[in-house]
């Protein structure tokens, strides 16, 4: 061992250096404090849609933001449409709305962790990135599968179902009266494909 290295070792020995336990304690403390701060600022007032409905206004906003990202640009998305067509419909199966809310929250948490903001605070392009990052676009929809598969089943499929079973999809499909949306007397008087 050389003199230089001995001198270096003695200097390091006299310098105050935190022990491993102190360092881990500091890291843990920082994590707890940061977590408490994050959860504290991230919580929002939950305004439920109704007493029996598990979804809140925040869930409707998040679902509308996702719809804005996945619907074609020719389709205008508004919150009332998503609320009525997705959240206020008859529940398809027991527990469906609970699962829908869970998947929305999973997307929200992922967006917050990996994209730094809530889904509603991101651009439509970045929202699509959120879904791709969760690999929602690379899996099949399965109600009892992984989180990505459940997001595809409960959130994306519900939003697409709402779109394609409403007259809003007419520019895309050409179907003016999807099931459940009769056109009324005027529609029956028109010639096929005609305006009158």
């Amino acid at each position: 061992m050389t003199d230089g290295s001995q001198r270096g070792d003695s200097e390091r020995a006299t310098a105050p250096e935190p022990t491993r336990r102190q360092l881990l304690g500091a890291l843990g403390g920082a994590a707890v404090a940061a977590g408490a701060y994050g959860y504290g600022t991230g919580s929002r007032e939950a305004e439920q849609l109704s007493d029996s409905h598990p979804a809140s206004r925040a869930h409707v906003e998040a679902a509308t933001a996702v719809a804005d990202a996945i619907y074609p640009q020719s389709v205008a998305v508004d919150e009332s449409f998503v609320e009525n067509a997705v959240f206020r419909r008859v529940e398809p199966t027991p527990g469906h709305f609970d699962a829908l809310v869970e998947t929305i929250e999973a997307v929200e948490r992922h967006a917050s962790a990996r994209f730094g903001a809530s889904v509603t605070g991101l651009s439509p392009g970045t929202r699509r990135q959120v879904l791709q990052s969760m690999n929602v676009t690379a899996v099949h929809a399965m109600p009892d599968g992984t989180t990505a598969e459940r997001v595809r089943f409960y959130l994306l499929n519900d939003l697409l179902y709402a779109l394609f079973t409403s007259p809003r999809s007419r520019p895309l499909t050409g179907i003016e009266n999807p099931p459940g949306h009769p056109g009324g007397l005027a529609a029956y008087r028109r010639a096929p494909g005609g305006d009158e």
Binding site: V32, A34, S112, A113
Partner: peptide, 18 residues
């Protein structure tokens, strides 16, 4: 790895991705 975990804690969004 600790930094990543602290970041996700800071965001209040620890999950499987973490």
């Amino acid at each position: 790895a600790a930094g990543v975990i602290i970041h996700d804690l800071f965001r209040g969004a620890v999950g499987l991705w973490t």
